[in-house]
Computed example of a mutant assay.
Amino acid sequence: MSDNGITLYDLQLASGATISPFVWATKLALGHKGFDPDIVPGGFTGIAERTGGKTERLPAIVDKGEWILDSWLIAEHLDAAYPDRPTLIGDPGIRPSAQMNEAWLWQNAVGPWMTCYLVAYRDRSLPQDHDYVTSTRERMFGNRKLEDIIVGREDRLPQISANLELLRSTLRENPWFGGETPNYTDHRLLACFLWLASVCDTPALVEDDPLRDWIDRGFDLYGGLGRHPGLSNIFGLQIRDGDPEPFNRNPVANGLSKRNTGVASTSGETARITGKATEQADA
């Protein structure tokens, strides 16, 4: 029994690794607050029975007898109930910006990655969950068989990686999305990569992806929450001739990310947009 009175209802694969990105976000939030909760294990089958009819979706925590459902409500509860511990959300503007970033990541990566890993998603689930995963995920994707949905994934994976430049551009100038330290925005986004590690039976990102530093540091947080032995290495994608570059290897600073401190600080960009850089090179 933990000494803080918090119980977390987990959603797991056969390996014991967490599958749900929303449960991952809650695990990271609890770690951020310094809590080591009691874990109630289980998969998709029997959630209502495990929770005594309180919910059929996870995550859920019980904090000193109080049930809190939904990962965002849990984070807000932890900040309100434990203001003396490190803050998760803080400024109210963090929530809408975090939700926008997370929605962008789901649209550009999590959803497309799902089409690449649905068979592994099913096969790694608890045996009693295989039918549930198959029927629900096939329905989500137009009643197509999981084996048909993943066809062509080797063509899609490099493009999904290339679509993540928004994350990379921010992390080139900031160690965390929370600035100098991680906050709940980092936890929400890292949770998507932890979900990826739970289902990827072939790597999704190249070895030298600039995201690796942030992801590795994120997986190491709170005693290595993201280092469960049931998770796969997400790095090692092999790029073939004709594939798009998996990330921008020659990023150019612009007004979205750099500070103007005078003419010298903007001269390079000015030369590029006026064509003077090309004229000088031709000369």
Rank of each mutant, 00 (worst) to 15 (best):
A120D: 14
K276T: 01
G16Y: 08
S265G: 11
N163R: 14
T18D: 06
P210I: 02
E76M: 06
A48V: 07
R240G: 09
G90L: 00
A29Y: 11
N174C: 05
E269Y: 09
I150L: 09
W104N: 03
P21C: 00
N233G: 14
P21F: 01
G226T: 14
L118D: 15
D131R: 11
R188L: 04
R153L: 03
R124Y: 13
E147V: 14
E66I: 12
D241G: 15
A75Q: 08
G43H: 05
R188D: 06
D63C: 03
S198N: 02
H228L: 01
E76P: 04
I6K: 08
A103I: 08
D79E: 07
R124E: 08
V62L: 02
V206H: 06
D131N: 12
F44D: 09
N108H: 15
I94Y: 05
G5W: 14
R50S: 05
G179N: 04
D208N: 15
A48Y: 06
N254V: 04
E56H: 02
W176P: 08
R240I: 10
G275C: 09
Y184T: 06
A264W: 05
P96E: 01
G178T: 10
T136G: 15
E180K: 14
L78V: 05
D131V: 06
G42C: 07
E56L: 00
G34P: 13
K64P: 07
A271V: 05
T45G: 07
P210E: 01
L221E: 08
E279S: 03
E180P: 10
L105N: 02
H130P: 08
L58H: 12
W195G: 07
N248Y: 10
Y184C: 01
